[in-house]
Amino acid sequence: MSTPVRSTYPVPVEDLIPAARELTAELGNLPSRNRIMKEYRIGADKARTILDALTEPTSGPAEPHLRSVPDPGDAGRDDAAAQTPAAVDEGASPQVTAPADLGMVAELTLSAEVPAASPSEVRLVRSWPVLLLALPAFVAVWSGWVGLGELTGFGVVHPLPGIADGFTINSAITLPIGVETYAAFALRVWLSGRVPISARRFAKWSALSALLLGALGQVAYHLLEAAGVTRAPWQITTVVACLPVAVLGMGAALAHLIHARPAQKGDN
């Protein structure tokens, strides 16, 4: 973190520029004039001068270094001929033009940049097979959750009493819709890479937890069904009854983290 320059006497602009560069690196962008005035307690003219210094173009890349290494076999040759440098035309690509009889070996290190492929050259992998994979999984997961819900007390309810008495709904369908939909949503948020780090971390662990709960729910239903049990034990009923509330809480928290702005300095 950059250390503010404090002094009882006016600080020269030349001494403030290095500190301003550290502040720029810390913020990740160019600070405003008011920020510089407040940070270093200076006037508008000095702040403008510092901004001009920060926005000056940096010097270009260093010229490639050319070093001549004498051949060990020519140690006894004329010293004047051995110390003759190779000619390099300024503005042209570095080349060694030393005569062969001098026995000079040029070592030149150049960095090569490989151009990245353009978006048009990238071939995307088709994701339609996921729909084919999801169809049988949807049937199995849906039937398993609905069956487990009925064994734990979920069933037909009248959601609109006094308004539409004939309207009924089986509350067992809330289990596959809530748990499996949240697992898919959190998995998408985790792997997208387009959300804040805190949202990605929460999405990762909550998605894995939702998938694990889904797997345990399927296992519990099939074990109870195979054993001929018509009413689930109270332990399983307790866990299943809490699932809708847990899914609602995780979904609301993840949506908040996705749209939360980064914390600023000075926020309580």
Rank of each mutant, 00 (worst) to 15 (best):
Q83E: 13
A19M: 05
A241G: 10
F154K: 08
L23K: 00
N170L: 11
P18N: 05
P10H: 09
Y182G: 03
D78L: 06
S68W: 14
A246H: 13
N170S: 15
A92T: 10
S59P: 06
V146W: 14
S209P: 04
A47L: 10
P233Y: 13
G149E: 07
S198H: 12
V156N: 10
G91P: 04
A246F: 13
T152G: 04
W142P: 05
T168H: 08
P57N: 07
A246R: 14
A172C: 11
A86W: 02
Q235P: 08
L175N: 04
R231Q: 13
V125C: 08
I177N: 13
L102W: 09
Y9V: 12
R33H: 10
A87F: 13
A140M: 15
R200F: 05
L224W: 04
I236H: 08
V13P: 02
P136M: 11
A80H: 12
I50H: 06
L23Q: 00
L223A: 14
T168C: 09
P70I: 07
E225H: 15
L213C: 08
E39D: 15
A20S: 15
P12G: 04
Y182H: 05
V229C: 08
C242E: 11
G60A: 11
D89F: 12
A199Y: 01
K46G: 01
A137K: 12
L54R: 02
A134D: 12
W205E: 03
V179D: 02
